[in-house]
Design a protein around this nucleic acid. Structure first.
Lengths: 191, 191
DNA sequence: AGCCGCATGTAACTTGTTACATGATTTC
DNA sequence: GAAATCATGTAACAAGTTACATGCGGCT
């Protein structure tokens, strides 16, 4: 039910097309809410029907036309209402952790590969998040930012994403170390 | 699709009823995979049909009869196959973060309450996880444990859960501090 | 010539959630 | 005497995934 609210929250940054939202969900909202483009298109239709967002068509010449959505007053009210309700506990679904949980000695090599790949994408994400944080701070220190900005939510959720990715990276290193201690130097290339 | 594998992984600890699994998912598997009892019952039927688990009925006198499930060889093989596939990226859905993202000054009090409640349950979880960790280590240090145990997965996923909850708690404190800096001492009871 | 980005959508299917129903036993 | 625990299940609905389809413009 809260996909609705995640979309409304993302629209607080300003009007956006379904395509724009899909990108936003991919790079930033994904920290705390995952959704595919198809979900967004479907949900946007519903939100427009329910009057929680305004939809307006923008005709473009060199690009396909697009529908641009923005928050309505009713949408803002729905968000406020949602914020007042008790949040459901965090739901996580993580293939990699299932794989680690279940692995036996024979699976170590496969898992090592998955961990290495995850490490790389986490490091990427972290770098992007940190760049975004610096852009937000814009020279101020954190205290000044938090005191001065009208909306501090985006900074706080970003901080959580940064901590999460750091934790992820540290954990990946730990797992690799544990596997190395178990099966020393199985991979070629080291003397 | 990996609910299947999360169940199979959980059954590596030994045979269990649907009810047992629901509890296990609630207290430990929930770190990396969330599932309701109803999902488990449905999926267990499918797994039994597909031959990935054995089901056997245990008649009890003072309690309702139960169906107890255990991994079959086919189930073990399915897990190995799953471990060899590329994991999908972590999916998170977190109401509280959506609320923080979207909050305006008027919502600060409500969010403060949600954060305080989350802080309490996270602290509880963390305490349970740390107790479980000590029970696993059973006096050994981590290096000895990782070198000696046949299956190190459960320890590693638990370590991730511990780090995650610690991160959560730290973040909750940060958010409370940010809110306090904004709206100092709104709540009564302090001089 | 072929791929990537923009931009949306339909349809079929699989998962996940919620509400309800049952009923004995043990604990407060 | 009420509530929690044990133990399962049905059914209806909501949400999420996957595959497919379209078509132009810009880049290499």
């Amino acid at each position: 039910m809260a996909l609705k609210d995640a979309i409304l929250a993302t629209l607080l940054h300003g009007e956006a097309s379904g395509y724009d939202l899909a990108k936003a969900f991919d790079v930033s909202t994904a920290n705390f809410w995952t959704a595919s483009p198809q979900q967004l298109y479907r949900e946007l239709d519903r939100l427009a029907d329910a009057g929680l967002v305004h939809a307006r068509v923008v005709n473009q010449e060199k690009r396909p036309n697009k529908r641009v959505f923005s928050l309505s007053d009713a949408g803002r009210a729905a968000l406020t209402e949602f914020i007042a309700t008790d949040p459901k506990p965090t739901a996580i679904r993580d293939d990699l952790l299932v794989q680690v949980e279940a692995m036996g000695p024979g699976d170590h090599e496969a898992v090592r590969g998955h961990i290495a790949a995850t490490l790389a994408t986490s490091a990427d994400k972290l770098a992007r998040y940190e760049r975004r944080r610096l852009r937000m701070l814009d020279g101020r220190d954190e205290a000044a930012y938090l005191a001065g900005e009208p909306r501090i939510g985006p900074y706080l959720t970003l901080a959580r994403g940064i901590a999460f990715e750091r934790g992820n990276i540290a954990w990946c290193h730990d797992v690799l170390a544990a596997l190395d201690a178990r099966d020393p130097a199985v991979t070629p290339g080291r003397a």
